[in-house]
Design a binder for these strands. Structure first.
Lengths: 145, 145
DNA sequence: ATATATTCAGAGTATTTAGTCTGATTATTA
DNA sequence: TAATAATCAGACTAAATACTCTGAATATAT
């Protein structure tokens, strides 16, 4: 599991990244997804349903149905997915978990974390899913077997 | 909860930080700790026992007993505590959670995360517990009521 | 129309993490 | 030596997260 996100969020990212490699109008079945990426079938199904409700994906039932991106891959960032699944409150709260760590009266690594937090934010927001998919040279995401 | 650590680890940090403000030979009871810091009694007891076994603390039973630092506060870093409780594997693995993210064949934010990882490591390793305790001006850690 | 391949929905189970309870042990003090 | 104040240990419960199952709904192709 990742240190920053829940497993659900990871799976969401991996799935969306996979979909980004396909023509936007083409539907991808859960079955195909789970063959390429190692995610439990029914679990990813629920996650994709969720992403569909939240407007990132579209779904079609029936044969040749499946899921696809609702908007072009270049218009989606990792940050948006993370925000939709996990929320951002954890990233924005005290890194040591101190309850009353505020701007005025803060923990010992507050300033250092502020900088790191900014970088993390930038890392998640700077690249869109399309650029990311292009960066992923890994076989598991390539469309040809 | 913190984004980087488990709750156990947080509590460990808070407790150790509190102990660092006391003379090293003075024992602090769990009761006192839980009065100053909002941590469940029996839970923190287990954590302190664990830290004792791992050599960070000493404990004494009986009246006027309790826990204290086994080594001077200036010789303990946050990183050491984190390593002892949570381990460092999460920090060192792929931030997007991709299973086969390696040096050669990596995820889209690998390089960016490398830099952030370094900063996090530095943040946790650069200050010892004594400096940290001094930085904490928060009333909850002060010794006077 | 019927068979089929898919999503949809919600309840159910499993695992991990967090937190609690109780009784024993130990050391101090009076 | 007896009362007391503390840790120690381990079993227990609760909550959150991860994951599974089943049956329905729906759309397509033949």
């Amino acid at each position: 599991m990742s240190i920053l996100f829940s497993r659900q969020c990871e799976y969401a990212l991996q799935a969306v990244l996979y979909l980004a490699l396909k023509p936007q109008n083409e539907m991808t079945s859960i079955r195909e997804l789970t063959k390429r990426i190692d995610i439990p079938y029914h679990f990813v199904a629920k996650i994709l349903q969720d992403l569909t409700r939240k407007g990132f994906l579209v779904s079609h039932k029936g044969p040749a149905g499946g899921f696809g991106l609702a908007v072009p891959a270049k218009d989606i960032t990792i940050l948006q997915i993370v925000e939709a699944i996990d929320g951002l409150s954890l990233i924005n709260s005290c890194v040591l978990g101190f309850p009353n760590c505020t701007h005025d009266d803060h923990c010992a690594v507050h300033d250092q974390w502020e900088i790191i937090r900014e970088r993390i934010h930038h890392m998640l927001a700077s690249k869109n899913i399309l650029e990311m998919a292009d960066d992923n040279k890994k076989p598991q995401y390539s469309l040809t077997i």
